[in-house]
Design a protein around this nucleic acid. Structure first.
Lengths: 225, 225
DNA sequence: CCTCTCATTCTGGTATGGTAGAATACCACC
DNA sequence: GGTGGTATTCTACCATACCAGAATGAGAGG
């Protein structure tokens, strides 16, 4: 979505700091509530405060940190509202993608999707921890096949907003099997070009996240704000 | 969506510069391609480069400007792709909102919506230039009535991305009448809780933007990138 | 007249110092 | 011992100076 015109991206100090901090926040190495002083971070990275400031500003735009002038900058916790927002948008996008997909679906689409499904089965048995990324690939693939590459961007954006939650919802292979079954059913509905069935499956598929979120909320309420 | 926890917002210099530049870009006082040198802008506002830098960075996040290190920072033109992206997301959101609305619609919703429609009629005769804002209100109102305040945020966000285009598409009262007719039909479909009809009307309603965009693209191709 | 080279100038990125405001800790005073 | 005021210490913000890369222009060489 960004920097499409210029491909040579100068690697700036602010970029490095930003990406490092982003990673640490997303992976929960930096827990919500952690104070991120410009000076401290600058010392830690051995750079000046300016690029740190820039990086924190960007994190603030993504609502990952809350910068309170003259007070402090802290890592924000999860917000049920923001999660719900991302969920809603994601659902809306997926539904429209499926609608479009049904309109243009053909045999080549089915086979392309089937290759991804085969991979999912294999991964689920060998390296189940990789299932999540393949899950995402599955949905993005449908976007492409439906002729909506834009939707893929939108979905990716939604996922970024709840990246950290996914970190907490690991070790759920039992659910992975359920999700894969959903994917299978969805593929069949697409093949049959049955819009209503595909939409219903999509709704149910995404709604499975809600219970997961609920559990996380009760288990780790300290991470919420 | 932002700064919900802290209500006292310190008005920082960077904020002022940002909002001023944002306004000028959105209103097309600053045309696409205009160079925005940090130093120049700083001199113009009588501040140092630092807050200007911050402001430009934020504008970059919104993709309103393109900052090219060691080269220059320029106002970005419209991008058909980004417009299409906003359009797609908007459509997806609206469709889901309508679906939800049909599920919960009752008489009170109908009357609330009718009040807005009456206003639209009156405005269209007296101050047609105000119709656009009322149009937006109409859609946001449906979000609220449908119990999806989150959708309202999403729609607002989409509109911001094509704010500048709206500036160009003024003076189109003839279309306003068409849009109002759509609104009327949509209201009837909602009252009848006819999901399919409501969705179809919504699709047609939003697709009317496409021709407008096309015209603008051919009339002002110099503003596109 | 064209072309290549190099110096000048402009760009954004970085480092550093200083400032105002908010929080905190401390101490006098009740 | 509890309370109120004050000084210290933090914070992010702003201004200034300097840097390296990129564009631009002029001049030398063909």
């Amino acid at each position: 979505m960004q920097e499409s015109t210029e491909l040579f991206e100068r690697r700036t100090t602010a970029d490095v700091v930003f990406e490092q901090l982003y990673g640490e926040i997303a992976s929960l190495e930096l827990l919500p509530g952690t104070k991120l002083s410009e000076a401290d971070v600058a010392r830690r990275f051995g750079v000046s405060r300016q690029p740190v400031r820039e990086a924190l500003s960007r994190l603030g735009n993504l609502e990952l940190v809350l910068v309170r002038p003259q007070r402090a900058t802290i890592v924000r916790g999860f917000s049920l509202q923001r999660v719900a927002y991302a969920r809603f948008v994601r659902l809306a996008i997926e539904l429209e993608v499926i609608t479009q997909a049904c309109a243009v679906w053909d045999a080549s689409c089915t086979s392309a999707l089937q290759r991804n499904l085969d991979l999912q089965h294999k991964i689920l048995e060998t390296e189940p921890e990789q299932f999540h990324s393949l899950d995402l690939r599955f949905h993005l693939l449908i976007c492409e096949l439906a002729g909506c590459p834009l939707a893929a961007e939108a979905i990716t954006e939604c996922r970024q907003k709840i990246d950290r939650l996914c970190t907490l919802s690991l070790a759920r292979q039992s659910e992975a099997a359920t999700l894969l079954a959903d994917h299978e059913k969805l593929a069949k509905a697409l093949q049959a070009k049955s819009v209503d069935r595909a939409l219903a499956i999509t709704r149910q598929h995404l709604s499975r996240l809600d219970s997961t979120i609920k559990e996380i909320h009760s288990e780790h309420s300290e991470y919420f704000e």
